Amino acid sequence: MSSTDLVPASGAQAVQTVARTDDRQFLTFRIGEEEYGLDILRVQEIRSYEAPTRVANAPMFVKGVVNLRGVIVPILDLRIRLGQPSEYNAFTVVIVLNVAGRVVGIVVDSVSDVLALSAEEIKPRPEVPAAMDARFITGLGKIGDRMLILLDIEAMIKSPDFGLVD
């Protein structure tokens, strides 16, 4: 950014194009009709879906493992875990996360974009019964007409339901 990027033109107010320091960035993705967000700092990479090697006696949402540059990565189908139908197509992706000292992949329907949300745009989680345990929801992000369910992916992965972390 040059010094002229912030100079007002003919008395107009300067417009700053960089994100505010209080903004948090979220990777947004879809599962069914819902849009979710997770902390971008947890994301290592996004990969197209490839069938993993199945692990015997694993829960249905654990699709198996893949070898990612020498690291064995468990692949969890977040759609199955959240009780949604699981259909694999060209948009299905794996979000590779670095969570709780582990590398884990989660299968989602599609990835949308990265959004910066200010504290004012993040609302507290609702106190209503949900298909998903509310302890894994940090809040709701609201941008215009869009509503994002913001996940605490670390708490989810660490939960005994997943069985990945001691």
Rank of each mutant, 00 (worst) to 15 (best):
S2R: 12
S3Q: 14
L6A: 09
G11C: 09
G11P: 13
G11H: 10
A12G: 11
Q16R: 12
A19C: 10
A19S: 12
R20I: 02
R20N: 10
T21Q: 05
T21G: 00
D22N: 13
D22Y: 10
D22R: 06
R24L: 13
Q25G: 02
Q25S: 07
Q25F: 11
L27H: 03
F29D: 01
R30L: 06
I31V: 12
I31D: 03
G32F: 04
G37P: 00
L38F: 01
D39R: 07
I40K: 03
L41M: 13
I46A: 02
I46Q: 02
S48E: 13
Y49H: 08
A51D: 10
P52Y: 05
P52T: 07
T53W: 10
R54T: 07
V55L: 15
A56M: 06
A56E: 13
P59D: 11
P59A: 08
F61R: 02
V65P: 02
V66E: 02
G70N: 08
V71G: 00
I72D: 06
V73N: 04
P74L: 05
L76H: 02
L76G: 00
D77F: 03
I80M: 09
I80N: 00
R81P: 01
L82E: 10
G83L: 11
G83S: 05
E87F: 13
Y88T: 15
A90T: 12
F91V: 07
F91L: 11
V93P: 00
V94S: 04
I95F: 05
V96I: 15
L97Y: 02
L97T: 07
N98G: 09
A100L: 08
G101T: 06
G101K: 05
R102A: 06
R102F: 01
V103M: 06
V104P: 02
G105E: 08
I106Q: 04
I106F: 01
V108K: 03
V108E: 06
V108Q: 07
D109N: 09
S110Q: 11
S110I: 07
V114Q: 03
L115I: 14
L115S: 04
S118R: 10
A119I: 09
E120T: 15
I122H: 00
K123M: 09
P124S: 12
P124Q: 08
R125I: 06
P126M: 14
P126H: 07
P126I: 13
V128T: 12
A130K: 12
A131L: 14
A134T: 14
T138V: 06
G141H: 06
K142G: 00
G144D: 13
D145F: 02
M147D: 05
L148H: 02
I149Q: 02
L150C: 05
L151V: 04
I153C: 03
A155T: 06
I157T: 02
K158T: 07
K158D: 01
P160Q: 09
P160D: 15
P160A: 15
D161H: 14
F162W: 11
F162L: 15
F162Y: 13
G163D: 13
V165A: 05
